[in-house]
Design a protein around this nucleic acid. Structure first.
Lengths: 158, 158
DNA sequence: AGAAACCCTGTAGCCACTTCAGTGTCAAGT
DNA sequence: ACTTGACACTGAAGTGGCTACAGGGTTTCT
């Protein structure tokens, strides 16, 4: 099968597959005479594995580690379990953060009086006031958990 | 005050301030003879406003919009409220996603038999099996909500 | 034979910063 | 007056995980 077929089989984009090859998550494959990549079912399995991990929001580095264990399994599975446990923690932290965030946003939104003018709205002033008051929770942000917004190849303001 | 003082006052890094200036969230300031930026309390307020919005996980584009309303307030506040409402929705969606994620991860983790060998662990095979079964939830990912991992200027695998 | 559909490489872009190299300024201490 | 050190400056490049595009080549269908 060619790269397009693999892409369909594993519900991935062609460019992503080539990207994974560059990143050495997928090994380089045989090529046809016309220099096309050739894949078999084993590649579908491996790529699906990767995509599934990504859907679970693991980093490529975490997936790299898992793949290494897949390729040459260690004596006991605690390493793998630790990796997954760590990841569960990261997700838990992020959920907590987002919930607190959500509360702040709703509070902010409720500070709007109604349909009136901006002066009475309270949202902007809420943002200003809070900002001056708070000690700004100087989180070192060591957890590898990030924001709310999807990075999706958009332009800047035009 | 100089840039370092502003940084301290608004709990920000110096480089971030210069970045915001390049991005035109902060206007260019007066300079000393030695070409140092000079700031006043109004800059502390504005930068704190920006940082507060960022802590609420708004994009710089969203903040740009809010700043525009701050600089020249519109007749009614519905535009601002809509912006905040939209943002609340984004956060809600992300929380939901992460919760489903969390469930999958915990299920995966529970598939480990105990302290045994990898063959019996079930985590790796769980990741493989699930990946082949699922139709891969071909989400178009239009919501601007992204992953679980903090981007923090790290090196690649060395 | 010609067009459409696919494939190739290489490079640049996205966000919101961070880091780094290389240089300049300024206040305090000796 | 001189050094030391802390701070400031610019410009460019790097982070993750892709996506998009330019500019070509190959294969397949009609």
């Amino acid at each position: 099968m060619k790269i397009g077929d693999l892409a369909k089989a594993a519900h991935t984009q062609v460019e992503t597959i080539r990207y994974y090859e560059r990143e050495e998550l997928l090994a380089q494959t045989a090529r046809t005479e016309g220099n096309y990549r050739v894949y078999g079912p084993e590649h579908v399995e491996r790529l699906s594995f990767i995509r599934h991990c990504r859907r679970l929001d693991m980093t490529l580095d975490e997936i790299r580690a898992l793949l290494k264990f897949k390729d040459s399994p260690p004596k006991d599975c605690s390493v793998i379990n630790n990796l997954v446990d760590e990841h569960i923690k990261h997700v838990a932290v992020r959920i907590k953060e987002l919930k607190s965030l959500q509360k702040q946003l709703v509070d902010l939104r409720n500070s709007c009086a109604g349909g009136g003018a901006v002066d009475e709205c309270g949202v902007l002033s809420g943002l200003s006031r809070a900002s001056l008051a708070e000690p700004a929770t100087d989180t070192p942000y060591d957890g590898h958990v990030h924001g709310t917004h999807k990075v999706s190849g958009k332009r800047k303001s035009p």
